[in-house]
Design a protein around this nucleic acid. Structure first.
Lengths: 95, 95
DNA sequence: GCAACCTGTAACGTAACAGGTTACGCTATG
DNA sequence: CATAGCGTAACCTGTTACGTTACAGGTTGC
């Protein structure tokens, strides 16, 4: 179940949102109301999608904040699994 | 669409996981492999569910990490909407 | 060739958050 | 009363998001 490296959300933004519109990073950052550096960091995988950013992206691209957050969640979970391995946890549920 | 204060995930853990089992916070923290303080902070809404914690919770309670992350996402988004209000964002999509 | 623009990224700061240990006060139960 | 469980405070480290400023490299047009 989803064992392959999920793309970080920045790739999605660039490939599905910015490139089709032919908009520059500088202009997109201005439209989103964040600095060029902040958007650049996300696009290049050096920052994640914060809740605020998800709301801004949803408003700009006419989507839902949840969809952006879920992309980030998938990426974060995949990354945490790589780093954490199998944590030493006792089962507490019914079986 | 979901305008009411969503519960923070700590309440869910306490009410749906710990109380039915009659397990103490101290023991649950030990089973999860985290400190008592860390679990206490989550249960009382003073910390969120990190990806690592979601993985631990999923293993202990035989659920999925995604379900815990989604709970946290709902809470974070609701909170961000309260704090951010309507951000000044230009529409970039088709219109 | 040079100027203008776009981009990545570095350095500096702020603020916030997760996690840990230690310690204190409260409450409930033996 | 003594002990256990709990919340929470202070203190630490590491990480992240965000901002401004500045610099280096690439493109494009004159």
């Amino acid at each position: 179940m989803s064992m392959h490296n999920p793309p970080h959300p920045g790739e999605i933004i660039r490939e599905l949102c910015l490139e089709p519109l032919g908009i520059t990073v500088t202009d997109a950052a201005a439209a989103l109301g964040v600095s060029r550096k902040t958007l650049s960091a996300i696009l290049n995988g050096r920052a994640g999608i914060s809740p605020e950013m998800a709301i801004r992206l949803a408003k700009a691209f006419d989507t839902t904040p949840e969809s952006w957050m879920n992309q980030q969640t998938q990426f974060d979970l995949w990354q945490a699994k790589q780093l954490l391995g199998e944590p030493d946890v006792q089962k507490l549920a019914v079986a």
